[in-house]
Design a protein around this nucleic acid. Sequence first.
DNA 1: CCGATGCTTCGATGAGCAACGAAGTATACT
DNA 2: AGTATACTTCGTTGCTCATCGAAGCATCGG
Lengths: 223, 223
Amino acid sequence: MEPDIASLAAMIADPSRAKMLTALLSGKALTATELALEADITAQTASNHLAKLLEKELLVVRKQGRHKYFQLAGEHIARLLENLMVLNHNITSIKTGPNDPSLKVSRVCYDHMAGEIAVALYAALLKQEIIIDKVDHCTLSPAGERFFITLGADFTTIKATTRPVCRPCLDWSERRSHLAGTLGQWILNDALHKGWAERDLVTRAIHFSPRGKRAFFNCYAIV
Amino acid sequence: MEPDIASLAAMIADPSRAKMLTALLSGKALTATELALEADITAQTASNHLAKLLEKELLVVRKQGRHKYFQLAGEHIARLLENLMVLNHNITSIKTGPNDPSLKVSRVCYDHMAGEIAVALYAALLKQEIIIDKVDHCTLSPAGERFFITLGADFTTIKATTRPVCRPCLDWSERRSHLAGTLGQWILNDALHKGWAERDLVTRAIHFSPRGKRAFFNCYAIV
DNA sequence: CCGATGCTTCGATGAGCAACGAAGTATACT
DNA sequence: AGTATACTTCGTTGCTCATCGAAGCATCGG
């Protein structure tokens, strides 16, 4: 028979679990109590939910002393969640984008950047033909690879995984593509590493310093 | 705040609704009673579910006399459902593929082909460089377009929509890509039109005649 | 060791909601 | 018109499951 999509969807259908999952979209590993706080429930119920999410393999866990660090089981789960956001966003809301303005400008999407700046970056990379776009996918051009090497990117590690290097990821606030994949990951890490931006300690927001933003825009020729 | 993915997921989380939705993955428009039968529930409860699915815009409806024909609201919904299938499939079952052997061989996925044959077709198109694959996307090569024109394809209509012409769609039984998009749609319609295959009247299965299968394999050089 | 912290198990409570029977509305067939 | 068919509305029932309090286990810090 057809596979059982209901039980998987049910994992996301509970509001508390949904809150936990979206919190984990930050890519950070969070402890059980942090997730309980995030979802506004007690530790007991959170424990219950987390057990279910583990059983269905939406999450993985790493035990460290008396803490348990939970993470999304992989990019595929993150993609599913973002997919749901895009669909639901298109459906329910007139007002576009998140209410929190800093989330709208720049935020983390699993392990890469999303939001206005990320969408502008994607457009800039396209314009310079660093990446080549084909409706719903993209590739890195040879010139693009050279460009990133001059920035200090190490393509032996970027290409080491089975994950694609470039992947367009639909931005639920902008409804346009931004860059995911290992290269998207590298760009975020690089910007953080160079001190151009910092991750918010509680939300998914990414805060650029004024200088950092100028440097970032200059580096990638974002207009 | 973050968008509300829970309520959308809840639509799919109910087993009866999930059955209806998977039935509609056939791409066919089904009436309320047909869907009630499919989900093994009475007409009243089905009516209830369908109202919810309409409200959340997972379905669209066309009224025709005393019948109401329901369809998926678009390819985006179909993709979401197939995504869920892939994930759930990878997670829960050891045995790969559907139990029904004819579904495993060939079935409809919204408006294109899926299953063993469709996966073999995708591989054959790749090998002949009719389509160019890049991990998670693909494009039609110029030679490929000429090839399909000799088969009688009309690219003015194929390219008329905003939908991509080629799109890889992960096959939940084979765990490999098959071809979606308007070209995937054309291939299915063409095969049906030429009498190589017929759609099952009740399930999503596609039945190739022995001659039809030979002709299909020969046409696309499937090995 | 002992208290504090993080997480889990158990049992009870309660709310949400899927399900259906019964009755109502709309359309079609003759 | 009159009956059958398709779908909807209403009210009731009953089950599932999220929630939390209480108590338990594990780990850390002194």
